[in-house]
Design a protein around this nucleic acid. Sequence first.
RNA 1: GGGGGCGUAGCUCAGUUGGUUAGAGCGCUGCCCUGUCACGGCAGAGGCCGCGGGUUCGAGUCCCGUCGCUCCCGCCA
Length: 528
Amino acid sequence: MVRIDGKVRRRPEGTLNPDLPTGEVEVYIDEIEVLGPAAELPMPVFGDQEYPEEIRLKYRFLDLRREKLHANIMLRGRVIDSIRARMKASGFFEFQTPILTASSPEGARDFLVPSRIHPGKFYALPQAPQQFKQLLMVAGFDRYFQIAPCFRDEDARADRSPGEFYQLDLEMSFVTQADVFDAVEPVIRGVFEEFADGKAVTPKFPLIPYAEAMAKYGSDKPDLRNPVIMQDVSEAFRGSGFKIFARILETAGNAVWAIPAKSGGNRAFCDRMNSWAQGEGQPGLGYIFWREGEEGGAGPLAKNIGPERTKMIADQLGLGVGDAVFFVAGKPKDFVKFAGLARTKVGEELGLIAKDRFEFCWIVDFPMFEWNEEEKKIDFSHNPFSMPNLSVEEFLALDANDHDKLLAIKAIQYDIVCNGVELSSGAIRNHRPEVMKKAFAIAGYPEETLEEKFGGMLHALSLGAPPHGGIAPGIDRIVMLLAGEENLREVVLFPMNQRAEDLLMGAPSEVTAKQLRELHIRLDLPKK
RNA sequence: GGGGGCGUAGCUCAGUUGGUUAGAGCGCUGCCCUGUCACGGCAGAGGCCGCGGGUUCGAGUCCCGUCGCUCCCGCCA
């Protein structure tokens, strides 16, 4: 680190360098001083050379000197500024909620903080300010937001930081789902338009019911940049010469879905997809493709089902010479995830994905309950505090044994999805204690359990709660998309590694015996 | 907790069918050059081939185990 005093001058003719931002000037040095000597760096700080995460994280302060990461972090700051300004301009007010709070029994694993004053008792770091923001609504603050830190002791993913992350947490009183959308969508769209760097942003986020998303895209977080849309083609295979599928279709509820692959009409591609599927643990991936001179369709399936049925499939999917189609068969619930992967794979392999876009949608109408096959009972399928999409009277009148009817109930719950990334989820909250009691009863929890675990919340709701709802877009994921990064660590200042270790600060770390004594804690470590 | 990939110089990587002394580029050190700007030239240092065990006359290479990093599943609003 040096200090240089001197005069900035124009470079002499012939030494100008238009490739450099400073290529027209130079400094004539009068004096130079070393302010902080530097040893050899463990990693160079220029260029886009890739380095192992371990070194990058251990020397994060060097990594942050690099242009890309520096720009990402600066972008993050500007995005947060923009979000905050947009929220305030929409009449939201920013609040701070506690970091040391109580452990909550549902959801993710808590980070616990032992209490010195109360031996044997623990605080927990909030998984989200969920209960506080609902209490704010009860308290009469009708438009809350916060750039809120959230703490969850769960395993990491590339798009999920271990330990902690940030949400744009917001909540509103006296609102419907549509009111929340009208408040949030302009903020998210505005921020993306502001920082999209020329990429197109969905002008009006379409609403896609959960069931439709699963049927068309095989995912509740579809990447709409991928034009591939799946269809049910069971009728083309029912009773056909392709016995494997014909037999599967004899079981009620089973189906055959088609994944169309425009421009994939060659054997090399179809074989590659088939081996990919086998690598994914599937028996294989049936296909038909069409090429010049074989308009009746090529591949083993086409031969088995004959030209008429093959044409039926081509017509239904709008496919022709040069195209291919893949099939998955069985119980949709079991194969839908793989079908979604195959759809993504087709899009990627054939270069069908429009990379220069931010494609948004709302996923709505999530099922309220789901069937737990192992325990043979009804479970909450997502958040137990969402309002069911029924009138209070209808919901209270439900028969807890009418499984078909219960499983068809939707919750007023919604996600924002962008380019296949789940950006946020929210809900209209269940603000009626009697509805909550009924919902928990359906899921098999006695009233005492509800009372014991959520008594405070329940009590608050019983003292005059407005209908309210909100959402919580993930800040890190927003910045990740805007920065064009695949990994959250590229948009976080001091991230932990996948094992939730901070290699720079050395966290987590052992503490002294004295500290433990003060906290009345004795360690009982696993034997190794 | 489970599965996949990776692990060779400070960094990025190569390393044949198992064969003698493990290489390259960048970086680093010294010297030379001095209108260069990813300068150039000469010379040089730097290796527990992640670790442990096994097979073999011989292992960076094959096998088993283990550790680390990473991606995914489980988990997670």
